[in-house]
């Protein structure tokens, strides 16, 4: 074996080792950079969200103590209604069952808490769920949540569109006897948008996964028909 060939072989081995070492280092740094990118991305998301959140909210007149809903009646049994003004099933529920609920309220049997959650913003191009919920806060401030909510459901826009315009929301308010100018400025200033956010967040915290959800004394009821509600209220009242 000639020493020259030996030297060549040794040089090749060293070169290969150096190349491997370089590759290893490169991989390490690329990986570190990629992980850093992912971590920074996550932190950006968190900080954007934190800056978007508003902790301060004003609940409208007639809200419950926690500011998570608008109260009607003062009966011994509490009925929680979670509704989104863009949700067609909520409209059906409202049209089928609200007379029964209103009657139970006037009979003094129940206390209803309406939670106008903004769950379905992704089904409109203008955040209609948030806008309509904030509008319902303005209506509650004027003492007419139930009338306004009923009217909103009667004129429910289809999912996937722009929803009702602010002018239409004001017109409906005037139609149920609310002061047009006061309502319009409440809506324009977004007075109850933080409240809507609070209502929605608290509903999510309470594991309300879909609308409408009806709780009778804290228990979700499966049968949302007028008869089902009466039966559940009667059972809870015993």
């Amino acid at each position: 074996m000639s020493s020259r060939k030996g030297q060549k072989d040794a040089a090749r081995v060293v070169r290969e080792q150096l190349a491997r070492e370089r590759r290893r280092k490169r991989t390490l740094w690329v990986s570190v950079a990629a992980v850093a990118v992912l971590v920074v991305a996550g932190l950006i998301g968190w900080s954007v969200y934190s800056s978007q959140r508003s902790d301060d909210f004003t609940a409208p007149t007639g809200s419950n103590e926690a500011g998570t809903g608008v109260v009607a009646g003062s009966g011994p049994v509490t009925v929680d209604v979670y509704e989104d003004f863009l949700c067609p099933a909520c409209k059906q529920f409202k049209q089928a069952s609200s007379p029964a609920i209103d009657q139970l309220v006037s009979e003094g049997k129940i206390r209803v808490v309406y939670h106008p959650v903004a769950y379905l913003n992704r089904y409109s191009s203008t955040q209609y769920s948030t806008r309509s919920s904030a509008a319902s806060g303005c209506a509650a401030e004027g003492g007419r949540y139930r009338e306004y909510a009923r009217a909103l459901f009667d004129r429910q826009p289809p999912q996937g569109g722009a929803g009702l315009s602010d002018e239409e929301l004001v017109d409906i308010a005037a139609g149920v006897g609310l002061d047009r100018d006061g309502f319009a400025s409440c809506l324009r200033e977004g007075t109850f948008k933080p409240w809507t956010e609070h209502v929605t967040e608290e509903a999510s915290k309470a594991n309300i996964a879909s609308t409408p959800t009806i709780l009778v004394d804290g228990e979700e009821i499966a049968d949302r028909s007028p008869e089902g509600i009466r039966a559940a209220v009667q059972a809870a009242g015993r």
Partner: peptide
């Protein structure tokens, strides 16, 4: 809420890394 806020950005970053073909295996 923290995970929910971070996740979309992490997903976008992952998409970007794969689009560029940077640190593909990772």
């Amino acid at each position: 809420t923290v995970i929910g806020a971070a996740l979309p950005f992490v997903e976008l970053a992952l998409g970007l890394l794969l689009l560029l073909g940077l640190a593909t295996r990772l």
